[in-house]
């Protein structure tokens, strides 16, 4: 699913300037606010999962970006209308990570994306 389509599905917006080409496809997602959880669960995720994946989180700190960077996530989706600082957005952009935002809570946005075809780790 393209970034534009995802933004439409979640009624959100892209918070970083365009990083990937318009036809770049995101296919997978993982949701959580505990970064150590993501680091442990995704350490042995199938190759390509994070590279075409979205980290969905309500954690808007620098460490959510760092976690996405260590795991090679293509994008991070900040829920509940939280606004990352410029420092956080700059760090994401410099690491090549797309930051998306939505006012929805994580549960709702996960449901919308799953219904639209984004897959989770258990589906692989």
């Amino acid at each position: 699913m393209t970034i534009n389509k995802i933004v439409e599905v979640i009624r959100g917006k892209e918070l970083t300037p365009p990083i990937k080409p318009a036809n770049f496809e995101l296919k997978y997602a993982f949701s959580g606010d505990l970064m150590s959880d993501a680091l442990m669960v995704l350490r042995e995720a199938p190759e390509g999962f994070c590279e075409a994946g979205i980290l969905i989180t309500g954690n808007v700190t620098m460490q959510s970006i760092r976690t996405a960077e260590m795991l090679d996530f293509a994008a991070i989706l900040i829920t509940r209308g939280k606004v990352p600082t410029k420092q956080v957005l700059d760090q994401a952009y410099n690491s090549g990570i797309i930051v998306l935002g939505t006012n929805d809570v994580s549960f709702t946005v996960c449901g919308k994306l799953y219904s639209a075809g984004i897959k989770g780790l258990s589906d692989l």
Partner: peptide, 10 residues
């Protein structure tokens, strides 16, 4: 914990 750590798995 606010920064997403402290789950006891590190």
């Amino acid at each position: 914990i606010t920064y997403g750590f402290g789950a006891g798995m590190g």
